[in-house]
Design a protein around this nucleic acid. Sequence first.
DNA 1: CACATTTTAGTTGTGTACAACTAAGTTGCT
DNA 2: AGCAACTTAGTTGTACACAACTAAAATGTG
Lengths: 151, 151
Amino acid sequence: MGVLPDDLACFAVHVAARELDNAYRPALRELGLTYPQYMTMLVLWDRDPQTVKELGAALRFDSGTLSPLLKRLEAAGFVTRERSTTDERSVLVRLTTRGRKLEERGKDLVAKVFSTFHYSDRDAEHLHEEMRKLVAALDEHAAEFGRGARG
Amino acid sequence: MGVLPDDLACFAVHVAARELDNAYRPALRELGLTYPQYMTMLVLWDRDPQTVKELGAALRFDSGTLSPLLKRLEAAGFVTRERSTTDERSVLVRLTTRGRKLEERGKDLVAKVFSTFHYSDRDAEHLHEEMRKLVAALDEHAAEFGRGARG
DNA sequence: CACATTTTAGTTGTGTACAACTAAGTTGCT
DNA sequence: AGCAACTTAGTTGTACACAACTAAAATGTG
C-alpha cells in the first residue's frame, strides 16, 4: 500500500553507507581509527602538512565535524596542529612519526576489505561511477537550492 | 601518489548519503522531521501500530538508535508508546491523529525532492539496483565475518 | 590609514549510529 | 514447577554530521 523505506533508492544509499562503515570497523579498530579518521589519514599520507580548510575540502567536512575529529587524532598521537605563521587564521595539520608509520599498515586496507565481500574491481568501478553521477546531481541541486543559492 | 578518498567508491557512498540528507533537510524541516524520523513515519503510515522490533527490522536500526528516536517522535506528538499486553517485553508504537494527518503532507515528498535534482525514474531505479547489489554483498559479508559469525 | 567584509577555526546544541551493558519478560527443558 | 537461555527495550558512552554562532586574522575599498 504505502511507500516503504525498502522501496526507496535514497534509503538504500543510507543503508549501504552504514553497512560499509560496519564492514571496515574491525580492520580499522586494529589501527585505532574510525572510518572518517582513516579517510583523513589518507589525505595526509598523500600530502603533509595540510590546513584544516584543505582537509575539509578533500573530505567534504565542515569545521564542526573536522575540528573535534582532528583533536582526537592529535590525542591519539597521529597528528599535530599548529597555527600557520604566514596566515594565523589557518591551522596546519602535520603527521607525527607515529602517524606516518601507520601508513604501512593502513595503505592497502581498502582493497583488502573490499575484496572480502565479493566485489571485483569492475563492480567497484561501476559502483563508483553510479555514485559520482548521484553526487554530481546532488552538488548541482545544492548549488541551485542550497545555502549558497542565488534566488 | 597515495590513494585519496575521491578515488574510493566507499567514500563516494558516504558522501552521497550525507548529501541526500542535506537535499531532503529543507523539505523535512517543514514537517518537523529528520530523515531517519521520516523513514520511521513511512513504516508506520504503512502499518500501525508496530513494535520497536518490527520498526528496527524495517529500518535496520538497533534499539540504541531507535529508542531515543521514538522518544523524540513521541515528544513531538506524532506517536505514542505502550507496552504490549500480550508480551510485556514488546513496546507498541502507534500513530497519533497528528501523526496520521502528517501523511498527507509527507506522502509524495520523496518523489518531489528526487525530481528537483535531475534524476529520472529510470536513473533512480538504476541507482536502487546498484545499491541493492552492494547491500546484498555487505549483508553476506556481515553474516560471514560479523558478530553473528560461525567461525 | 580606517573600517566593513570576508576568511578561517573553533564551540555549542541537536540528532543519528553503534558497542557494550542492564533490566525485565518469555520460552524451553527437565 | 524451577531455572537457564533467550528475547525485547532501554541506557551509557563515544564519535560523526550539521546548523548557528563566535573570535580572530586578513583583505578590500574609499
